[in-house]
Design a protein around this nucleic acid. Sequence first.
DNA 1: GTCTATAGGAAGATAGAC
DNA 2: GTCTATCTTCCTATAGAC
Lengths: 193, 193
Amino acid sequence: MARKASVGNEDLLARLGATFRRVGYDGASLAQLSEATGLKKASLYHRFPDGKEQMGLEVLQEAGRWLTRHVLEPLAGEGSPRERITAMASELDVFYQNGKQACLLNLLSSPIGIAGPFQTAIRDMLEAFVAALAAVAEEAGFTPTEARERAERLVALVQGGLVLARGLGSTDPFTRVLSRLPTELLGTDTAIA
Amino acid sequence: MARKASVGNEDLLARLGATFRRVGYDGASLAQLSEATGLKKASLYHRFPDGKEQMGLEVLQEAGRWLTRHVLEPLAGEGSPRERITAMASELDVFYQNGKQACLLNLLSSPIGIAGPFQTAIRDMLEAFVAALAAVAEEAGFTPTEARERAERLVALVQGGLVLARGLGSTDPFTRVLSRLPTELLGTDTAIA
DNA sequence: GTCTATAGGAAGATAGAC
DNA sequence: GTCTATCTTCCTATAGAC
């Protein structure tokens, strides 16, 4: 049952994902997706009979697998809370290429009222991410509500860091956000006013 | 020189902007923009000879004027730092409709390497926003670098809150983020771990 | 499974009447 | 300044050879 093909499933999804993350879902034409993968349009349809939408879904599922392996599982694993958050920041830094790559969960999501084809997948992934972080915060001693709020805030900070990096045309904001993640989830802030 | 027309410039830009914020720039077809404004395609081209791109630019400029009037000027105005940030949060809540409306600066921005037609406008607006917040933080006693970082973080938090609200399909994350803005910029956090 | 070729329609944009 | 009608290009998607 070996795969003789030109690209291989993982590589294929990675290239499609990279294109979506670069130009957005609506911005990505089949011509671009074809060029990015090295497969002609008809070949893409052979692999994804439901077309672009199926590509989006499978790319999202692949991102979900990455999230589980590189974020959720490590967060539930060994080490102190702080160590785990720091390790996670490192993973995110690689995944988003210091902020140069956008997030699919941002680019594929639909307005609040309208139900897009990716919405449940996106919601599930974000929810799982927040829950995993909240568990770490609880373990560190925060109440469930406080832990949940901090977790949510951390995810918002990551997403916002990516938006800011794009908007300002610099990876710095994202890098700074990443370095703040342990503090953001686990506390120790200094105040003045 | 009175305008006899059906919509009026401000209303027109508002409707175009609402469409962009709902479905994104690439996702917005001229057919949709036509329907949203009540103007036929040819009429839109009469008003915007350079087409969709010009619409995007002018909508962005209109957003810039809103930002100046409702955020930048109040931030530089009367009241304690905390009062000004709270007032700003209130303005943002209205503008983004509790998180139901996305942000143009997110939807129109291009990847870090690539220079899109809106990039400088977006960068300028984000930069001005951060700068105005940093000034408030400095006034509250933070060092310039610390103030700048806090300002940047606040903007990231707002953007991320919008992304999260969309992704989770709920306005709650955005509302919670807004309520945290004073603390986020001016400090007073409690720690455990 | 991959390709060339093409269908069929929607996209952005224009011409010209009123 | 707004419209109907149209143009061209690009898009998604399919047919059918290899």
